[in-house]
Amino acid sequence: MKHRTFFWFFLPTGLAMLLFIAAPIVSVVLQSVFAPHEPVLITAQTCTPFSCTEETTIDQEATRALREAKPLGRFVGLDIYFNRGHLATAEVAEAWRTSDNLTAFFHELGDLPFYRAMAFTLTYTFTVTPLLIIIGMAIALAVNTLAQKLKGVVIFFSLLPMIVTPLVGSLIMFWMIDNRGVLGNFLSWLVSDPDLSVKASTGLMWISLIVYGIWHSAPFAFVVFYAGLQTLPEDQIEAAQIDGASRWQQVRYIVVPHLMPLVTFVALIQLMDNFRVFEPIVGFNAAAHATSLSWIIFNDLGGETRQLSAAAATSVMTIIGVAILLSPVLVRTWRDFKGKM
């Protein structure tokens, strides 16, 4: 295809991505180094015959003029990144100096919004991803032994948790684990503690979020592995059977190695997707116990005061986090491409 023809074919989609993905990223980076203008203050002296008082008021006119002249705000460099709402370098240094041991230090860190969010996001990402792979693999192996007619039905029901709107799915779960809901009741009965409430306990809330995450993403792993199982090398399995390999050995030494590229694929995709965990926190109303970077951005943007600069700084840090998780995928794609050349 000629360059010219390619250009015209690619123009609409390229333009859409340029204007609404690339430009916003630039705009986010810009916003994160500018802070809103301070209101312009004027001090007026009003004198009565007996005394003079100084009065400070906001000069609305001048403030508006300043905001219009420089809509981005005043340049503050990387200040926003290091303030208390983000990396909080001063507070971290302070905590390091004053705490006697590591436990106390981490306890102090837990009070800073950014580190609190990171703690949950990373725990979530690195527990949900391996568990959903193991469970997805188990479902795929089990479904593969079923009769053909049953498979379709099982796949239909398995797809539901993944296809459902994340916010809706998490609400459905949340209503069940509510202490007046069916699962909440069941849990109370199980530990015979009528006052048990998932909503009130940080640990239980984390566990519920993680369980939700697995419930939501295991079907994806299942479908991918199930497709992989359809291309199993029959002759190798037969050879192993003749050699007297047990069922477990067949799975361990033939099936799992055969699916390994798919496991890497699912792991890479899911690491990125779980890192941006967001809807479950809204659905579970869990902000008191668990937050994530995406949730912080959402929280800053919403509400009465839209804190655009704060949100932009968190966005940039999220993008950096995603980029780190994305790098292995890029390296892999690059190698594939080189292989094809």
């Binding site: 609404f20 993905i21 430009a23 916003p24 990223i25 630039v26 705009s27 986010v28 916003q31 809509p71 941006r276 967001f278 995406s294 951005i297 959402f298 800053d300 943007l301 839209r306 655009l308 949100a311 932009a312 966005s315 940039v316 999220t318 993008i319």
Partner: peptide
């Protein structure tokens, strides 16, 4: 959500 903060302004 990271792009959204770039859209608003």
């Amino acid at each position: 959500i990271t792009l959204v903060s770039g859209y608003l302004l």
